[in-house]
């Protein structure tokens, strides 16, 4: 009998520990259905704002050295209300809704839009590194983080995850503020602020100049963050950053993650990454004699 891959992230119950990261293919319920069919335990939507945003001009997404990816999409999204009306047409596709905003009223207004949708949780984007007044600029203001997380917790009975990244404040203070305000889990990490310059033309490549680095180059940093948050304790963790193989995923679980998110590894049409990673985790568990994901979470810290 195959080992069960189910995992709990606080109150969130997942059939498999691999999730689609926010902002990756995150605008269509039909695509979400496909990704869930590929074996993802959950899908996270593109970060949604109160109003529709066009995002930045292209180039918005390009490759980076050593298998990385650089993006400054600029949080383009159709807006929470439009998105909710799309979700209502597909009640059979459960999603985690990612929200981005500047203050409590933005988040409260958006949560109320999703009342009649199949939303299994909210992820608060406190960590996008390339848009003014939201994302990391909010995450760096720990007092504001506490107010926003508290407001969303009061607005919904669904699990609330706070997604953190590396900004100018100590990210652990952001984690603490979110935990103290009642967050059910922490997602770590978002992309890391970065840029690309073309030597031939002496021009920054991204239209926004600055973007976020993701993929393989950030994996060791993300792994370190998950380990540190686990050491701090008291909160379930979703690991994210540079995961593309079962071995990467296992490393994050051993560092302290109860589930992982995958983003850049889908590049080139590799939607099959979820089933491949799941299968690899299952083989690893059999080999090592683990009967549940929960038995592996944070093992590296106990060694």
């Amino acid at each position: 009998m195959p080992v069960p891959l189910s995992t709990n992230v606080g109150p969130l119950e997942l059939e498999s520990p691999t999730m689609l990261a926010s902002g990756i293919l995150g605008i269509s319920t039909e695509v979400f259905g496909r990704i869930l069919g590929e074996g993802a335990g959950a899908v996270v939507t593109k970060s949604l704002s109160t109003e529709p945003w066009e995002g930045y001009a292209n180039p918005t997404v390009i490759g980076a050295d050593n298998g990385g990816m650089l993006n400054a999409v600029g949080l383009s999204n159709p807006g929470a209300a439009e998105f909710a009306s799309m979700l209502k047409k597909s009640p059979d596709v459960p999603v985690i809704v990612s929200l981005v905003g500047s203050a409590e009223p933005d988040f409260e207004a958006m949560v109320s839009e999703f009342k009649d949708c199949n939303v299994i949780g909210y992820e608060l984007n406190l960590s996008c590194p390339h848009v003014a007044k939201v994302g990391l600029e909010v995450g760096d203001d720990v007092e504001l983080v506490g107010r926003i997380v508290g407001a969303v917790k009061r607005a919904t009975p669904s699990p609330v995850m706070a997604k953190v990244g590396l900004g100018s404040a100590n990210y652990m203070d952001t984690v603490t503020a979110a935990v103290d305000a009642g967050a059910d889990a922490i997602t770590a990490i978002n992309t890391i602020r970065a840029m690309a310059i073309d030597a031939d033309t002496a021009v920054p490549v991204l239209s926004n100049k600055f973007g976020g680095l993701s993929g393989a180059p950030i994996k060791p940093i993300a792994l370190r963050c998950v380990y540190e948050i686990a050491e701090r304790g008291g909160i379930p963790i979703i690991g994210c950053g540079g995961i593309s193989t079962w071995r990467d995923a296992v490393e994050f679980i051993l560092a302290g993650a109860s589930a992982v998110q995958i983003g850049s590894a889908l590049s080139g049409g590799r939607t099959g990454v979820f089933s491949q990673v799941n299968a690899g985790i299952g083989r690893y568990m059999e080999q090592k004699g683990h009967s549940a994901i929960s038995g592996m979470v944070g093992l590296a810290a106990k060694s």
Partner: peptide
């Protein structure tokens, strides 16, 4: 199209990219 890489989702047509 924003990425051409199967990442951003802007080119979706039903469940396909």
């Amino acid at each position: 199209m924003k990425c051409g890489l199967g990442i951003c989702g802007s080119c979706c047509m039903d469940s396909h990219l």
